[in-house]
Design a protein around this nucleic acid. Sequence first.
DNA 1: TTGCCGCCTTTGTA
DNA 2: ATACAAAGGCGGC
Length: 294
Amino acid sequence: MKITLNPTTTPFNLDYTLQCGQVFRWEKHGDWWYAIVAKKATKIRQTSNVLEFEGVDASFIEKCFRLHDPLPLILSKISRDAHIRNAIQNFHGLRLVRQDPWECLISYICATYKNIPAIQNMIGNLSRQFGHEITLDNHSLYTFPNPTTLAKANITELTRCKLGFRAKNVHETAKKVDTQTVRLAELETMPYEAAKNELLKLPGVGEKVADCVLLFSLNKLEAFPVDVWIKKTILENYHEYLNIAFVQKALKKKSLTPSEYRQIGSFARGYFGEYAGYAQQYLFHHERSVCQAV
DNA sequence: TTGCCGCCTTTGTA
DNA sequence: ATACAAAGGCGGC
């Protein structure tokens, strides 16, 4: 199947979107990107303004890649200064992806204190160990294990997936989701703060992980995850909008207190507006690309 | 109630 | 090779 995009009203760049570090399970073979989404093996490629795909229908692709988000409007709203305009220009067509909340939750619990290649490894290990295989074009893809499966898994099996100290958090979170102690399915209908408070009840989920899950899977575009890269770029490029003592203190420490974290988040929402999450993704990808080869 | 400290496994990268 | 950083969170004080 194919979708033809109008590049003026619906700019989109598939490679930027899948390479910017928000998703961990899409793999590129030749021109095609492969993954399992919604339990179905799928592949997609982009040739200029045409998206070609198999395995899912057009409405799912539009939802998954947020093609109905009014990107030109969003970009005009977050283009508040030369720094972010530069990031937007460098990655024209980058969009947020709408992920499955459960897979997104486990992915970002695993992302704690890990770099992106290592995260891809951990999530791949979990899927091979606990998911089931689906083959497409001779590529083996694996479904992501459901909450019940990971709740029943023992710590030794999880540790074998190289999760390290995250194995216990993944296991305990899986139990709480499986028993509906935290109802993931209901969070999208809740306001940002309320949904965040629910996520914070899960072990391994702090301010940053909660914001990632809210932004990447629960449609909260005001979520502004502050990781080491975003902390760096905010303190370097936006210090004039922050208290001097606050900036100097934050620069000295590796991790932020919840209070400091929330100060940066509320600055970002005030400065970039309701689409602060999009600003975060452009700033994140830009900062990473100038500091290391991506 | 809040801040700070040290620790948590393992991999990537220089 | 050996060190240091990595899309942080948590319990102790």
